[in-house]
Design a protein around this nucleic acid. Structure first.
Lengths: 330, 330
DNA sequence: CAAAATATGTCAATCGTTTATCACAAAATT
DNA sequence: AATTTTGTGATAAACGATTGACATATTTTG
């Protein structure tokens, strides 16, 4: 059996009250007693049972982090940074992969509530606003409006769409296509689409929106991309994410379309992973470390003062264009 | 305040004992009472406090999953599958990224113990055997021997190293290099190296081991790879992981070395990610779904019967060679 | 119709820790 | 020498749910 507080007390030859005082560092304590107690804790390899502490009222220091998946490098990097920052702040992260599944997301939220987490960061987008509203816990959302009470952090998706389009134009493209999941109401890619559309209008070009669901497999996406490349004649494509952009580059090579001469491609996300392993791709980079830091800070604030009125509900962080050889001949 | 059991009882007009009986489904219960209680639970959006339940003796249904990082697609896919399987079995996963940091790993283990997790799956390799031995919890290890009491699951690393070498040889290579992190005692890549060395010996070739630390950044690895390609003259390289292999392909292209004509490359891991986004890479594929399933099953067994003698301590799963255009001209 | 099975309630102990209250010394300060 | 500060202990009530013991209905069954 795991040692408990009374075992430590016995071993140290003090009362259990004293041990608790040492652990929680309150009241009057002599250095001598502290040392004795710490020694006993060490000898027994004692860890206070956090269930019991939390049950009494102390917070659990547990955070639920819900994202659709972690196999997408963007989410992986974001989640890893979030996890790291929370670890440094003494929190533990329960990983929840919602897998774009409404039921799973709902089940996760129930589970998180049951486990008395201190707060939730969610980057999943399946549930309705009302469901999130009645959670009754500090929540911070990534990239999607959930309710008036829930702060949202995102990059400047609109600006990203705009810049990508403009960059393609300045690189000489006249037939610029938008490729990605379009028209899922409230979805962040919508803003990227808006940015694209407005830029196209300003540039006096025609908009071409080619839709592929974000959740489709790479193979299916590739088929759709092949069709796009073969039947239409794009000279520029802005993709709503880097992985789709990589598939475009792949297909272009297969079809002997020269990049960037005949076709220019811009991605979106700009993970460290893509920069390392697909340095040829021009992309709109989201500031992942900043996003993670802000999400974590905001949630900690909400935890500290749950009832404080939100001074701001939207936090939009700037994106950065990374120019590389998929748009620009070096 | 979150509703508690007594609130449900009050609302349903029954005793708290009855509510508990409904929740835990024991004793005699009429359908009518059950319905009333469920309705009350639903109305109040009640979730039993799992801290209290666990404190009483019920298990926490929490599992600690420790891996160095999740930005590596291999770990991401493995962790995602592990998380999924545990979710389906009613467990929650606490994500622990050890970041190849001994102190962090130690801190995580203490934290997991304090949180009364039911068990741990670890794919991190920093701590000594004795530290893992005194954890006193069901543990299953991925790819590394931790102690006699801890089952290990891994793919057949030796066989993988052997096959990769043989495939390069049969594709015509005479100067086959081993590229990866070598010589970290007890590390899984050692077995891959052994496989390589034994195959080289059997084929009457000379072994060339080029070492790059797994943990180095992509840029530093690339510098090392450039040197390898420029100063030695490999016509075949077996890499200890796919990402390193991708860097080799990148550098080969930059140096105008034709693949597979002048240089053939084999990776290791064979994630879905690499197959989708680097289909040109030949690789030794680890059976990720099987590994995940086995890890989860074994841990569940250990949790169910912690004192049962281990019938087997090593589980080695077969690897599969995936032939593609980095070794074979299509 | 008596006995057994079913259905619900009351009460109290328990899990391991926190924390408040009271008590009592010993040490430090007036 | 009297008072305050400091250090420690004993006791008990929480936290929220579980569970066993026991009591008491109501329904079913032979």
């Amino acid at each position: 059996m795991r040692p408990k507080l009374t075992d430590v007390a016995k071993r140290a030859g003090v009362s259990s009250t004293t041990v608790s005082r040492v652990i929680n560092n309150y009241g009057y304590l002599s250095q001598k007693t502290k040392d004795k107690v710490f020694a006993a804790m060490h000898d027994l390899n004692y860890q206070p049972n956090s269930l019991a502490r939390s049950l009494h009222g102390k917070s659990t220091k547990l955070i639920g982090v819900i994202f659709p998946s972690i196999t997408n490098p963007f989410f992986a990097e974001l989640v890893e940074q979030i996890e790291n920052k929370f670890f440094n702040a003494g929190y533990k992260v329960i990983l929840c992969n919602s897998a774009d599944n409404k039921e799973k997301e709902r089940a996760y939220i129930r589970m998180l509530i049951a486990n008395q987490v201190d707060g939730i960061i969610t980057g999943a987008h399946n549930l309705g606003i009302d469901e999130y509203n009645k959670v009754g816990l500090p929540i911070v959302s990534f990239d999607r409006k959930l309710s008036e009470q829930i702060p949202i952090v995102s990059c400047d998706n609109y600006q990203g769409g705009w810049i990508a389009t403009e960059e393609l134009y300045h690189a000489g493209c006249k037939h610029i296509y938008f490729l990605g999941s379009a028209m899922r109401k409230g979805h962040p890619t919508d803003y990227r689409l808006n940015g694209y559309q407005d830029a196209i209008k300003k540039l006096d070009l025609t908009a071409h929106v080619h839709s592929v669901a974000f959740s489709e497999s790479a193979t299916i996406k590739s088929v759709s991309i092949r069709k796009l490349l073969e039947t239409h004649n794009p000279d520029g494509i802005m993709c709503t994410d880097d992985l789709t952009a990589v598939l475009v580059l792949q297909m272009a090579q297969k079809l002997n379309i020269r990049v960037p001469q005949d076709l220019k491609v811009v991605g979106f996300d700009g993970t460290k992973f893509i920069q390392d392993y697909h340095p040829e791709l021009s992309t709109i980079a989201q500031p992942i470390p900043d996003i993670a830091a802000l999400l974590v800070n905001l949630l900690q604030q909400r935890i500290a003062e749950p009832d404080k009125k939100l001074s701001q509900t939207q936090y939009v962080l700037p994106v950065k264009f990374i120019r590389s050889s998929s748009t620009f001949r070096l």
